[in-house]
Amino acid sequence: MINGHTAPGFEAVRAAFEANFAAGAEVGAAVSVYLHGKPVVDLWGGMAYPGTNRLWERDTLQVIFSTTKAATATCLLLLAERGEVDLDAPVADYWPEFAAAGKDRLMVRWLLTHQAGLAALDKPIARADALAWHPMVKALAAQRPLWEPGTDHGYHALTFGWLVGEVVRRVSGRSLGGFFRDEIAGPLDLDFHIGLPHDDLDRVSRLVMQPPTFGELPEEMRELAAAFMDSTSLTRRAYGCVEPAFDHNSPADQVAEIPATNGICTARALAGFYAGLIGNQILRPETIKMATIPQTSGPDLVTRRPFHVGLGFGLPTPTAAWYSPTAFGFSGLGGSIGYADPETGIAFGYVMNHVRSGPDADEPAARLSKAVNPAGP
């Protein structure tokens, strides 16, 4: 059963949401859309906790994996906008220990553009140490760059959060999650957390992890699949720098701050965050414009595919369902996504607990986005 509302003119979004469930693509999910700061779609449905009778409710929370990265980047951009951080200054100006291993001239902006050369560690760190924050920060400060910073780009799948978050912590005196809560989520009344309060643990939907289906990948993605199978590849090391791997169904992972991957929110809050970005409630328009200028091109060293990114915000390729020359956002493992388009005034958030893999992972979100913007590609 689908709950919620759609404003006149957005009925196609409800139809697409229902179709995703009918096709078996969803277990539990929610989608929200704002238009010029006003909510026009707010839908949810399915099971929040498979194997029980717990349905997805209006305030059900969901882990959004890398969709978190845009919120993390926004914290640093806000400090830069206020003049408290110079994006062209060395990271070591704010984090002196970071100057080790030849990183004394590594610029802050390269943390946002995945050009820092710190996508992996020479030696993986224990999960308990990663959850504790400071051991991971110490390891990154000591790590030598894996390529000359600023000369190439490789997706910092996990390390992005600690790198950006530690600069925010050093400058503001607050953890990344605390800064996000105080400066962004709190003022906008967003049910969006990086480091979940213990009292909210029972509201988090349980992830259903679909096994990888690499054998079904199209040819253009087979290089990435092969890299994942090679334990020595940069790809495998970037995603495997914490051992054992995180388990985002675990309360320990949910209450910790892992700013690259464990944001927890409602679809309403995710769309509201993007509505705030293009509604001048978080960053100034000139900051958004600066942050959405493409900074990288060509194949990414980690994902082995083109990765379009500005200063922390992902930029869609022309084949993406959410494509617009003025759109920006970020997606996460399994298909969650948040984005905004200043040109149309659309802000979009989609979250789900069925974490899909393979070439069809983004299809449910794509169908919803297409219903919002039928004129898109």
Score class of each variant (00 low, 15 high):
residue 124 P to Y: 00
residue 123 K to H: 07
residue 281 Q to E: 14
residue 265 C to E: 04
residue 326 T to C: 08
residue 99 A to I: 09
residue 201 L to A: 08
residue 318 P to H: 07
residue 162 W to F: 09
residue 59 D to G: 07
residue 83 G to V: 09
residue 325 P to F: 10
residue 245 A to K: 02
residue 335 G to E: 01
residue 295 Q to F: 05
residue 94 Y to F: 08
residue 115 Q to G: 04
residue 328 F to E: 11
residue 136 M to D: 01
residue 190 L to F: 07
residue 44 W to Q: 08
residue 192 F to Q: 04
residue 169 R to N: 10
residue 292 T to A: 09
residue 23 A to L: 00
residue 273 F to D: 01
residue 360 D to W: 14
residue 3 N to H: 15
residue 363 E to M: 10
residue 150 G to R: 04
residue 254 Q to H: 04
residue 161 G to Y: 07
residue 348 F to Y: 07
residue 329 G to M: 12
residue 292 T to P: 00
residue 105 R to V: 08
residue 294 P to A: 08
residue 102 G to T: 03
residue 323 Y to K: 10
residue 377 P to T: 00
residue 150 G to F: 10
residue 227 A to Q: 12
residue 344 T to S: 15
residue 331 S to Y: 09
residue 129 D to S: 02
residue 311 L to D: 11
residue 119 A to I: 00
residue 204 V to M: 07
residue 138 K to N: 03
residue 324 S to E: 03
residue 161 G to T: 05
residue 124 P to S: 04
residue 29 A to T: 09
residue 302 V to G: 07
residue 295 Q to G: 08
residue 368 L to E: 13
residue 230 D to Q: 02
residue 338 G to L: 01
residue 202 D to R: 10
residue 179 F to P: 09
residue 365 A to E: 02
residue 199 D to V: 15
residue 261 T to D: 15
residue 138 K to T: 15
residue 41 V to R: 11
residue 174 R to H: 15
residue 321 A to H: 09
residue 176 L to M: 13
residue 353 N to W: 07
residue 299 P to W: 02
residue 333 L to Q: 10
residue 358 G to H: 03
residue 267 A to P: 02
residue 335 G to V: 13
residue 140 L to Q: 08
residue 350 Y to P: 13
residue 161 G to Q: 15
residue 238 A to I: 00
residue 300 D to V: 06
residue 91 V to S: 07
residue 103 K to H: 09
residue 104 D to P: 00
residue 177 G to E: 06
residue 252 A to M: 03
residue 85 V to T: 08
residue 186 G to W: 13
residue 297 S to R: 12
residue 148 E to N: 08
residue 286 E to Q: 12
residue 272 G to P: 03
residue 317 T to N: 14
residue 305 R to A: 09
residue 41 V to A: 08
residue 14 R to Q: 14
residue 304 R to F: 03
residue 252 A to S: 08
residue 368 L to Q: 08
residue 98 F to R: 01
residue 297 S to C: 12
residue 103 K to N: 10
residue 128 A to Y: 00
residue 349 G to Y: 01
residue 117 G to P: 03
residue 3 N to G: 09
residue 283 L to V: 02
residue 280 N to D: 15
residue 175 S to P: 03
residue 92 A to Q: 04
residue 278 I to Y: 01
residue 223 E to D: 11
residue 40 V to H: 04
residue 85 V to Q: 03
residue 48 A to S: 13
residue 147 W to P: 05
residue 162 W to Y: 07
residue 119 A to S: 10
residue 77 L to A: 09
residue 18 E to K: 03
residue 180 F to L: 15
residue 349 G to I: 15
residue 26 E to A: 10
residue 310 G to H: 14
residue 181 R to T: 15
residue 220 E to F: 13
residue 335 G to M: 10
residue 42 D to L: 12
residue 152 D to K: 15
residue 27 V to N: 06
residue 324 S to P: 02
